[in-house]
Write a protein that binds this DNA or RNA. Structure first.
Length: 274
DNA sequence: AGCACTGTTTACAT
DNA sequence: TATGTAAACAGTGC
């Protein structure tokens, strides 16, 4: 489900809700979500911790604690729901945090792909998964030149596959990578090393624009994504190619096509993306 | 009914 | 080493 814009939307909602709150209890209803520690140990480490802030790194949510960080990844279907009081868990609720003020935070995840892991301050950025990420896409260190160099090194990989690789470029997922390539006029199967610097410039510019616009619209709701308040995003209303198979291209009017690339459904306009 | 598909990542085979 | 595939899981739609 969530790519960078959805995760950013979730973080912005959770930040004011949990910041300054102290964890009074944690119920782990499905241990599969917890990584790195036995659930009981994990829980003990969280008790009495105060959440200082909520940060985002790539598609990860970072709860900054008094000691260390709780790192969460929503994968396909993970969702956090804040509540002002105790609420009964529902079918796919796997973790429930209760704060000392009586408010609660539920983690729901239909497919149980999501993860939560505790990290020390020292380990956070120097151990996986965060150590594997490229810089944030909005970081001034990410330029067309640096991206061009990295894509050159990938020589034969399809540009779409390379852009989905979070160690190459952070934040794009299957929706936004298809949108980025359409807007840049680049065919998804193009070998990454074959892109000129000017083409990479365009790809970079469109990637940042797509992510920025999607954040402004609260992300995309295609089938199941909602923000922590249960509301949908609106970026899906502006999509050029994702999920538009057979629909006329908004630029040239010819039908959008869909193919399989690297195991992912890939939407593109064969006329606008050569 | 059964199979293919799904906003992600990674473990494992080649 | 690097790249492609399968797997983690549940639900939906054809």
């Amino acid at each position: 489900m969530p790519e960078l814009p959805e995760v950013e939307t979730v973080c912005r909602r959770l930040r004011p809700f949990v910041s300054g709150k102290t964890i009074a209890n944690v119920e782990v209803l499905d241990a599969k979500i917890i990584r790195g520690h036995e659930p009981e140990i994990w829980k003990q480490q969280l008790l009495d911790e105060t959440i200082q802030d909520v940060e985002r790194r790539g598609k990860f949510i970072l709860f900054k604690l008094t000691n260390g960080y709780l790192v969460s990844h929503l994968r396909m279907e993970g969702k956090f729901f804040p509540h002002d009081e105790m609420v009964n868990p529902v079918k796919h609720t796997h973790v429930v945090f209760t704060f000392t003020d009586g408010t609660t935070l539920h983690y729901n995840d239909v497919r149980k792909f999501g993860t939560m892991e505790l990290k020390t301050n020292d380990d956070l950025y120097v151990t996986p998964p965060l150590s594997l990420l490229a810089l944030e896409p909005f970081d001034s260190g990410v330029t067309a030149e640096t991206l061009h160099t990295r894509l050159k090194r990938m020589n034969v990989r399809a540009i779409k596959t390379a852009l989905l690789d979070q160690s190459i470029f952070v934040g794009l997922g299957n929706i936004y990578v298809d949108e980025t390539l359409f807007r840049a006029g680049v065919h998804p199967t193009r070998p990454s090393a074959s892109l000129s610097l000017d083409e990479v410039r365009l790809v970079h510019q469109e990637a940042v624009a797509v992510l920025t616009e999607a954040i402004e619209r609260g992300g995309s709701t295609i089938r199941s994504y909602t923000n922590p308040d249960g509301a949908s995003g609106t970026y899906q209303e502006t999509l050029y190619v994702y999920g538009q198979t057979g629909e006329p291209c908004k630029r040239c009017g010819r039908p959008i096509e869909k193919m399989k690339l690297g195991g992912r459904g890939t939407h593109y306009c064969p006329h606008c993306q050569q």
